[in-house]
């Protein structure tokens, strides 16, 4: 479940495949929007792909090392 606040999307603990569409629509709407991935523990490939396509800035990184590696091409803006 993603919580959208003003210009930051807070990813939930789990990001199932359905989240991709919603997240994509929200990110495409306004290019400067950012993502907080700190709570995320599991991310479906489609969500990951959406992040890599839209390339939003990350305000917080996820805990998991492998998730960090997967997202390490995105700019971090803390």
């Amino acid at each position: 479940m993603i919580t959208f606040k003003k210009d930051i999307a807070y990813l939930g603990e789990q990001c199932p495949v359905e989240d991709a569409e919603e997240l994509f629509a929200w990110l495409i709407d306004e290019p400067m929007r950012k993502v907080d991935a700190s709570a995320c523990q599991e991310m479906h490939t489609a969500v990951l792909q959406t992040l890599l396509l839209c390339r939003p800035k990350l305000v917080k990184l996820p805990q998991s090392v492998f998730l960090q590696q997967a997202l390490n091409t995105l700019a971090v803006d803390i």
Binding site: V17, A20, E21, F24, A25, I28, T45, A46, L48, Q49, T50, L52, L53, C54, F66, Q69, A70, L71, N72, T73
Partner: peptide, 25 residues
Amino acid sequence: LIGLSVDNAHAVKVDAELDVYQANI
């Protein structure tokens, strides 16, 4: 698993028409 890297498999135009459920990874 030691480490991983993920990226889009090919460049696409990112606009509202894009189908996020076509895997491109």
